[in-house]
Amino acid sequence: MDTPQPTAGEMQARVLHRDGLMLVIDKPAGIAVHKGPKGGPNLEASFDALRYGLPRPPVLAHRLDRDTSGCLVLGRHRKATASLGLLFKHGKIGKTYWAVVEGGPAENEGEIDIPLGRLDETRGWWQKPDPNGLPSQSRWSVMGRGDGLTWLALEPVTGRTHQLRVHCAAMGFPIVGDNIYGNGPRFGEPSLHLHSREIVVPLSKNKPPVRVVAPVPLHLHERLRACGWNGEDVHAPEQVASHA
């Protein structure tokens, strides 16, 4: 899936939440969040459309993989971006992803605790299970099953690169369309079935956390429906969604 450089109007249409400190946008799959060594379309190049009167464009507070869709948090000025960075660093932001995986676990919920390390020096950000790597934990809950697939709500407790993708593959249920750690094709369908569904940000001490939900992108609809999904109003189990 290749997504062209978004126009100003397309970027503004993807704003899910806006306040004085941050934006949450609905990242499309198939586009990098920032410019890589090979160039090409990237979200950051379109952030100028999201200034909304401020002197500078917003800044990424975290990252999502090129082929992952959904909630992406941007800081609107330096102080806000620094505060958001600390919240992400210390695991204070609740993140719930939806994934469709091949096969699936026998149980209905659980936790994956597998340290991760760099695959090798030539593969950039690619990761592997590594007993000497960084501690990495993910929680999962089954949302539905069907047709050799399982729909999972995934919560990364730690925030390692490619963590959910490596963890699911290591457990024997790779994410559908994962062309690095699973069985996805290099080109064409199915593309990666991983979506940042919900984010909960406790940014203000005097206000409740900001909770944002991203709509399910079209490329996930068919396989989610095969697992029992029936529309937008289904939320992750409370123990996953409310963790902050």
Rank of each mutant, 00 (worst) to 15 (best):
V33N: 11
H34P: 10
K35H: 12
G36I: 10
G36W: 07
P37Y: 13
K38Y: 15
G39F: 09
G39I: 03
G40S: 10
P41Y: 02
P41F: 06
L43N: 01
L43I: 12
E44V: 07
A45I: 09
S46G: 11
S46R: 04
D48Q: 14
D48G: 15
A49K: 13
A49E: 06
L50D: 00
L50A: 00
L50Y: 07
R51E: 13
Y52S: 04
Y52A: 11
G53P: 00
L54T: 02
L54W: 03
P55Y: 11
R56F: 14
R56I: 14
R56H: 15
P57H: 10
P57V: 13
V59W: 01
V59H: 01
V59Q: 09
V59M: 12
V59T: 11
V59A: 12
L60W: 01
L60F: 07
L60N: 04
L60Q: 05
A61M: 06
A61H: 06
H62V: 05
H62Q: 03
R63S: 13
R63L: 11
R63Y: 09
R63V: 10
R63T: 07
R63W: 05
L64K: 13
L64F: 06
D65R: 00
D65Y: 01
D65E: 14
D65M: 00
R66N: 01
T68L: 01
S69A: 14
G70S: 12
G70Y: 05
